[in-house]
Amino acid sequence: MNSADGAPTGRDTVFVVDDSRTARDVLRLHLTRLGCDVVPLEGADACMAELERRVPAFILMDLRLERTQGDEACRAVKNHAAGRNVPVIMLTTAGEPHEVMHCGRAGADDFLPKPVSAEALTAKVAAMRLSRERAYDRPPRGRGVLLVEGGRFLHTFLGGALEHEGMHVLYARDLDEAMALADAHGSRLDGFVLDVSRLPREVLSLAARLREVHPRKPLVLLSRAEEPLDVLVRSQALCGAPLLVKRNLGADELLSRVLGRLVPGGSPLRAAERVPFFTVVEYLSAGGMTHSGFSHDASPEALFVRTLTPAREGSRLALKLLMAGQRTPSVAEATVAWANPPRLGSPFHAPVGMGLRLERMDSQLAQQFVRFVPRSLGFLPAAASRLSTF
C-alpha cells in the first residue's frame, strides 16, 4: 500500500479468501511474518464487500469456495472497477491442471498449489512488492513501442501480437493522445507503429515529428488500404521502407514484417494465430527453488507462461509440464526469450510472465504439439533458419 504522497508504507494489505478457517489462519501466519496486513475473508461475497471499502495489494483466493466458486469470484474481482488491476493468486489442488485452466480463463494472474509452500508464497509476495518500483522503470531495452491505432484490428491483433513478443505497448487511439504519449514517454520508447488509414497526411505529420525527435528509433507505417502516390512516397522517405498495406499481406506476413522492422534480426516466438495450450509449468530458479506458473498458449516452437515470478531472460530452464488427463508430467528444456515481471501502475501494456523458446521436449509433449499446434501456423522463414531438435 502507498501513503498519500505515493511513497510505499512498507506493509501490504492482502485479502485471503478461503472458506476454511484453518487455511486462512495458516496463510495469515505466513503473510504476517512477511510484513503484510492480512484481511481474512470467508467467501466471495465477503471479498466483494471488502473490495468496496479498500483496495488490497493482491488477493489470495481458494478455487474451491462453497457458495461461489473461486474462478467466478476472480472474474467478479477483475470486472470490478476497484479490482481490475489487483493481482489475484489462486490456490488450487496440487497436480490438477484442469483447475489451473479454470483460474487462467477467469483472469487469475498466478496460482499456488495447496498446501502452500512458505518459500513459494514468499517469492510471490516479493514479486508484488517489486512491481510498484518497476512501474516507473523503462521497459527492457528495445521493448517499448507506441502503437497509434486506426481501428480494432491494430489493437486486438497487432497490439496483442507485439505484447506476445514480450513488448511493452502504449496504445494511442487518436493523434492528440499519440502526441501526449510520445512527449511523456519518448525516452522510454524504442519504436513507433502508426496506421495512416484514417488521416494519412495528419499521421504523416506526426511521423515526421517523431522522426525528427527520435531519428534512430524504428518507425513503421502501415495502412489497411491502398494510399495515394504522395502518401506512399512520403512514407518511404520517413521510414526508409515501403508502406505496409494490410490488404496486400496476410496477417502472419504483416506481423512478421512489422516485427522485422522493430527488431531487425530478431527471431519471433509467436505464429499467425495463438493456440490455447493450457498446462501447469514448474521450473527451477537460479537459486534452486521450484517456481510454478501456467501456459496459456503456444506457437510451433514456443510456450507462453503466465507467472508473477518469471526466470531471467536468457536463462535455460528444465521444465515439468502437466496437462489435463496426464498422470505423469512431460519434460522439456527451454530458453527464456523474454521475461516480464509484474509492473503495477505502468502505462505500458505487457504480458506478465515469460516467453520460452523450446529446445527439447519428450515424446509425450511433442505428440501434443503435433496434435494441437500445427507448424503451418508459423511464420515463413525470413532470416537465418534455426535447426529444431523436435
Rank of each mutant, 00 (worst) to 15 (best):
303 L>S: 05
297 D>Y: 12
340 N>Q: 07
305 V>A: 07
302 A>Q: 07
343 R>D: 01
307 T>H: 10
314 G>N: 06
334 A>G: 04
343 R>C: 12
310 P>R: 12
347 P>S: 06
327 R>S: 15
301 E>D: 15
324 A>C: 06
336 V>M: 05
319 L>T: 13
333 E>L: 12
342 P>C: 04
345 G>M: 07
313 E>C: 14
340 N>C: 07
304 F>R: 13
338 W>A: 00
328 T>K: 14
300 P>N: 11
348 F>C: 06
304 F>K: 03
310 P>D: 13
306 R>K: 13
325 G>P: 06
320 K>I: 01
341 P>Y: 03
299 S>I: 02
329 P>G: 03
299 S>K: 02
322 L>W: 07
320 K>N: 15
349 H>R: 14
305 V>H: 02
311 A>N: 04
329 P>Y: 08
333 E>G: 15
349 H>D: 09
298 A>L: 01
349 H>M: 06
298 A>V: 00
324 A>H: 10
305 V>T: 08
334 A>S: 04
295 S>A: 15
303 L>M: 11
337 A>N: 04
344 L>S: 13
338 W>N: 00
340 N>K: 04
343 R>I: 01
337 A>W: 03
315 S>H: 09
340 N>A: 11
344 L>R: 13
312 R>I: 00
295 S>D: 04
324 A>W: 01
333 E>R: 14
322 L>H: 09
305 V>D: 05
346 S>H: 10
299 S>N: 03
